[in-house]
Nucleic acid binder design. Sequence first.
RNA 1: GGAGGCAUAGCUCAGCUGGUUCAGAGCAUCUGCCUUACAAGCAGAGGGUCCGCGGUUCGAACCCGUGUGCCUCCACCA
Length: 914
Amino acid sequence: MTELAKTYTPQAFEGKWYQYWMDQKFFHAEPNSDKEPFTIVIPPPNVTGVLHMGHMLNNTIQDVLVRKARMEGKNACWVPGTDHASIATEAKVVQMLRERGIKKSDLSREDFLKYAWEWKEKYGGIILDQLKKLGASCDWDRTRFTMEPKLSEAVIEVFIDLYNKGLIYRGLRMVNWDPLGKTALSDEEVIHKEVQSKLYYIKYFMADGSGEFVTIATTRPETILADVAICVNPSDERFKAIVGKKVWVPFLKREIPVIADDYVDMDFGTGCLKVTPAHDVNDYALGQKYGLPVIDILDENGFLNADAKDERYIGKDRFAVRKQIAIDLVEAAHILKIEEYKNQVGTSERTGAVIEPRLSLQWWVDMKKFMERNPQVLEAVMSDEIQFHPAKMKNTYKHWIDNIKDWCISRQLWWGQRIPAWYNESGNFVGVGKTAEEALINRANTNDFAKAKADETTPNTQHPTPNAQHPTPNTQHPTPNAQHPSPNALHQDEDVLDTWFSSWLWPISVFDGFENPENEDIKHFYPTNDLVTAPEIMFFWVARMIMAGYEWRGEKPFSNVYYTGIVRDKQRRKMSKSLGNSPDPLDLIAQFGADGVRMGMLICSPAGNDILFDESQVEQGRNFANKIWNAFRLVKSWEVKPDNGFKPEIIISNNISANWFAGRLLQALIDIEDKYKGYKLSEALMGVYKLIWDDFCAWYLEMVKPVYGEPMNESTFNQTIAFFEELMKLLHPFMPFITEEIWQSMATRKAGSSICIEPYPIPRNAQSPDLSRVFETIQQIRNLRNSKGLSPKIAFEISIKANDKSLYEPYNFLIQKLANISAIHYVLVQPDGAILLPVGTDEVFIGLSLKIDLVADREKIEQEIIYLEGFMKSVNAKLSNAKFVANAKPELVEKERQKKADAAQKIEILRKNI
RNA sequence: GGAGGCAUAGCUCAGCUGGUUCAGAGCAUCUGCCUUACAAGCAGAGGGUCCGCGGUUCGAACCCGUGUGCCUCCACCA
């Protein structure tokens, strides 16, 4: 037998076994199987991403679920892949180009995309290799990319389909504009942050030259150059006189009207609002309502354009102008005062830039209509057809669905799926189609509804507001050209689609469910089983996948959604690159082993709770691996001989120990399965941890361990190996590497075998002896040794006075072995001068004359008596309460009576002891 | 501004439909041990007004109300 290292060295095994698993194709699944499918699609990480702690947690959980399912004999399929992440990736490419001295604006679309693909080929997919280090059992043959040709085709088809169904429209609307990314964003991509800013009180002088003025409070003085009106509340007495009159915009001397509308809050600021339709969502609504002009003074970069009219500011950044104009206003005596003010500003999720509300023509999905077609999207979640873990997430989901808004899906970027809309030479919309030809044909064939929708709107036509939340639905398409142009004269929309417009198809598109809706893969693997993701993308992704599932498959995309928490550091700060508080996952793996890291991440991360990561947890994981390793070393070291060479007592004793452990194993299996069912993975892992460390190592192995130098009998050895094997299988989903290594070396295995595909342990009947009194006796004796400074090496005799001897006598060998007792006597009265240890309502006597701190002992016992007497009192109170006896369940009353009797007996024992 | 959630040991969390599992676990702490598998270990111990205050009930960590403190999500008050 080869010597095993004293400590477990993960580096020696992890690479080897991962390679083996790959070679043997254990992770690959085909639909031609009688096995029940079990599918997970990975939340595709950004193609340019690098593994961070969040990924580690998320993918460890997925791997646990998949590995367990695989061992349960299911056709387990975990589909990996990456997301093209249009904004994030484009931003990175732009930055890379800038470093090389190339400006994006100097490149053609084609050239830029060439660079982007180059970048993707070079850095894309690093993260997938990193996942392998973690042990992720993905079906790598199925790796997909959201921008690969087939998936892009699906996206385009879906766009066309939605357009034909009348669910997509193009509209001039206020959008969230990211001046850094130079693109529109959906509401979900905007993060509101509280910032400290200033509230400027600015004087607007009456245009009649009277010298009178009104004061307006604003946080954005630069937008006064885009003002088109002043608005007050109609019932505000202070301003009644000026409604209908005109004021001058500071500096510009442009005359603008004073209007009145209920929207204005009389109590806020000065009760007087400046109206800037081009740069504020509410102002835009007001502008629409009162037919005000729109003056847009900002360009796509957030710089002031010529429409600002004031030379001092044109061509300058909005924030620079804000500072400058404030100074200029003060100088011109236009400022009454400036106050510190806290308010919320929207920022871009990707670039961090402050969002600018901007009027622009974008493509939208009509979500209200979409939801009307697919009511199951909400119903399925509320009825637990799709289960959320934790369930409290259902509230958040419902709230979003109930207040759903149209989805802005066009992005002014190049990296992504180009919108399949076509325009004629004068820029007028012609139609939608994969090609110009198709767009023309499609236009002719477009169903009546879509055609009507496309035709009904001409610029500047207003429609009644169907919903107060959508002040400006103003759906419009430029009037299509009456005569059909030739395809050559058409040009395609310059914009691409929102990344999430491809991600929402992921569970379907990875199985080519759009290209070929009846193919074997999708029929077998869809709907998928579990989705593991972060709560912050519930709206971006989870909700929309559910929508897509019902719209195109008529079926839910998954049955369970497990929301992970955010990984934070000990101070509860979110782990992030910028804070530098996130350890490099690969370093951690190198240091503690993948198994240790997996265990460290999972041991304290209940679903939906943030996990406070600390390296000590990973250390705990490593220690656990080491513990298992050493248990294995022990078992391996035994010299095994046939049973007939042993005394029968030894065989009998060992059988008792084995039976006891079998019972513990049974109970643990049931408990652990229960935890899995509730997706309480941390608790399931804890169950395995305690079963292995406490029950198996600390108790069972010590029970059967031969004295040093003695051999082990064969049947017990085999039984122990069988237990060990069960434990390894139980642990395998959590710690795949060490379990494989040990499983492979604990017995001779067939070529091509693996614990990965071994059957997951199922509960088996076991008759387990009740050793609770025996264990308590052992613990009491150990405790005594500890407190009295008695070496464990000194053996002594004990006497037991028990109500029921059968709870002790058959197990004498255990007490002797584990507490180092030389002999056990059963007595009816207390031996003279013996020390008493209470064990339940029984008494254990130690016949040693020891130097004992009598006072301290006595105090302790007296305290215990006081406690028990108090306890008796409360039990008595219960029992003498007629209402309790009448109302409580009879077995409960009986229990109370038993408790009373036990307590009385214990008190008696303790009294005697004093 | 709206909605939701949380508060139990030093830390992270269990605690199902109210009753004994005299409120549990892991980690951390403390005390003894280098006992031939493991010091990344062994044996043991201590540690809690279940956030405050009311109420319902025979009985409350659990149900209701209220206060306080934290967190998350949503949101266009200049």
